[in-house]
């Protein structure tokens, strides 16, 4: 496998006293859909702005095809800012042409590209409308068209799916998959974890200005606690109590959901279950991304979001190991 085409390397950015990004490092491969996940204020938007050159980092650099990204390279990036960023009183078609031209397209090519994306994103009816007269969802589509109009080689999208109806989500999704299919690395942030899980090849989880985990969903769940669903109708209330590294998440009738800390032996759980009587089901469940995320963020985020981060700089960018003792964190 070839290395990542877009590399973010050791970015740091401080706003006054607040460390918005502290040592952000990750890479995105060609043709990959990369999901960028994290709580509000975790540093996602700042990182994306730095990638687009809208912000200058205090430290670190962004590389594209092995070279530090310069202005000419950024011209080939497509960007969708967090909040919609369009002139409210400009007409949709005109606006897209303008942005295409600003990205270096000749006028005729910009017109063709604008027309193409207007059609592709089902905006033909609104091409001569002012942006401000469109619904928020349609403005979002225009925003995506604005990011795509110059046929970018990299896509960086900040919350592209927020505020979209299901049909629009599908359109957006198709377009992103299509672009990735052309070998374009696509990076987007989102709070819709189920969507990220469904769409993305890899996921980066951000907390406190740094990447605390990064990988495919499988990779992330391997390193996280495993879940077991055991259906043992004759088991007593505390049948799993004595097992090391095992905690009960919930009980519904005869079904028990268990959480296994890393290294805990699922076979011992099976034995314990069998000891109570018949076992109707014994299923190893992959935790949903939302659970993985919650575990990672609560355990990592426990020691401060903003300051005092200099002491443990060596814990970056690996798949974070979850703490063993998370009993009290969830109810």
């Amino acid at each position: 496998m070839t290395g990542p085409v877009l590399e973010v390397d050791g970015l740091r950015k401080r706003y006054g006293r607040r460390q918005a990004v502290a040592d952000m490092t990750f890479g995105i491969h060609a043709g990959e859909l990369f999901g960028f996940v994290g709580s509000n204020g975790a540093g996602k938007t700042t990182t994306m702005r730095i990638i687009l050159g809208v912000l200058t980092p205090d430290e670190g650099e962004v590389r594209w095809r092995g070279r530090p990204v310069d202005f000419a390279a950024r011209r080939q990036f497509g960007y969708m800012p967090e909040e919609r960023g369009l002139y409210p009183r400009m007409k949709v078609g005109e606006h897209l042409r303008y942005l295409g031209e600003l990205h270096g397209l000749p006028s005729a090519a910009a017109r063709r590209a604008a027309d193409r994306w207007v059609e592709r994103l089902e905006l033909s009816r609104y091409a001569t409308e002012e942006v401000q007269n469109l619904s928020l969802g349609n403005q979002q589509r225009v925003q995506l068209a604005a990011a795509l109009v110059h046929d970018p080689q990299v896509l960086v999208l900040d919350e592209p799916f927020s505020g979209l109806d299901p049909v629009a989500v599908d359109v957006m999704h198709d377009v992103l998959v299509e672009r990735a299919g052309d070998g374009v690395p696509v990076m987007f942030s989102s709070h819709q974890l189920s969507l990220v899980e469904r769409v993305c090849d890899r996921v980066g989880i951000v907390s406190g200005g740094r990447l605390i985990a990064c990988g495919t969903i499988e990779e992330l769940s391997e390193n996280a606690e495993r879940r077991l669903l055991v259906d043992a109708p004759e088991a007593g209330e505390n049948w799993a109590a004595g097992l090391r590294g095992v905690s009960v998440v919930s009980r519904e009738g005869s079904r028990t959901r268990l959480r296994l800390a890393k290294g805990a032996d699922d076979q011992r759980v099976l034995h314990a279950a069998l000891a109570t009587g018949p076992v109707l089901a014994f299923v190893s469940e992959r935790p949903p991304l939302s659970d993985l995320y919650r575990d990672l963020v609560t355990t990592t985020g426990a020691h401060g979001q903003d300051t005092g981060r200099t002491s443990d700089t060596d814990t970056t960018a690996g798949v974070a190991t979850t703490a063993n003792d998370t009993d009290g964190d969830e109810t």
Binding site: L52, V54, Y79, R84, L86, G104
Partner: peptide
């Protein structure tokens, strides 16, 4: 309107 972010990523 944040359009400036979009503009300054290219000029």
């Amino acid at each position: 309107s944040r359009v400036v972010e979009l503009l300054l990523s290219t000029i």
